[in-house]
């Protein structure tokens, strides 16, 4: 099983790297923001897999915190930046 966990974390990391392309290309600010949401979900999955691999409960706490705070940056984007600049 451990080998499967490792392969999956590597696969998810590659996924994340591919998503970086959308941040770079845009074209709009919203698209970049969406890609960063993808990173959040992927990072939670990576952390959960690593927690199982290392058998460390604390890593699930890190993932929990990630899941709790996943919305904050996006909310800040919608409420602050989008309302002042017309960032298309």
């Amino acid at each position: 099983m451990d080998r499967l966990y490792l392969i999956l974390t590597l696969f998810l990391l590659l996924n994340l790297a591919a998503g970086m392309w959308r941040v770079l290309r845009g074209p709009s600010a919203v698209d970049r923001m969406l890609a960063s949401q993808l990173f959040g979900t992927t990072a939670v999955a990576i952390l959960l897999l690593l927690a199982q691999l290392y058998e460390r409960e604390a890593l699930r706490d890190v993932a929990l915190l990630f899941a709790l705070l996943a919305a904050v940056t996006a909310v800040a984007f919608v409420r602050r930046l989008w309302q002042s600049h017309e960032h298309k």
């Binding site: 959040g40 990630f66 705070l69 904050v72 940056t73 909310v75 800040a76 984007f77 602050r80 930046l81």
Partner: peptide, 11 residues
């Protein structure tokens, strides 16, 4: 990083 920095930089 997830909770504060992004929000601070954007505002």
């Amino acid at each position: 990083g997830a909770g504060l920095t992004g929000a601070l930089l954007m505002s």
